[in-house]
Amino acid sequence: MPIQSVQQDNGQTLVMKVRGHFDFSLHKEFRQAYKNSEGVSRYVVDLMDTEYMDSSALGMLLLLREFASDHGGEVALRSCSREVRKILEIANFQRLFRIED
């Protein structure tokens, strides 16, 4: 599975780990990973094993952000490689997401 999700902190944090190519082919699975979550106040997308991402992945992140704010939560992007981070910065995503190590 390219996306693995785990709930932590008594279910308050949902960590979604994306492996390999993060592109449109994951859109269903990615949405599935958070859509039915309950009681989550923090959504973390772990990009440690993300090899490449493109703008449809950025789109998916924005949808997650929208979902999170509707449900009173926040989104953080974790463990981006330098290059993925660069793509995020070009898109000015650091203004929209918390980017953590």
Partner: peptide, 30 residues
């Protein structure tokens, strides 16, 4: 795309460039 990215890797493109080249080729192709 995966084939093209492997091709860049085989040709010795730096990792730093590969992510960016991926975005370029992927966006234009999509």
């Amino acid at each position: 795309l995966p084939a093209i990215m492997n091709f860049f890797a085989e040709l010795g493109a730096l990792e730093a460039h590969r992510q960016r080249l991926y975005v370029v080729v992927s966006e234009l192709y999509t």
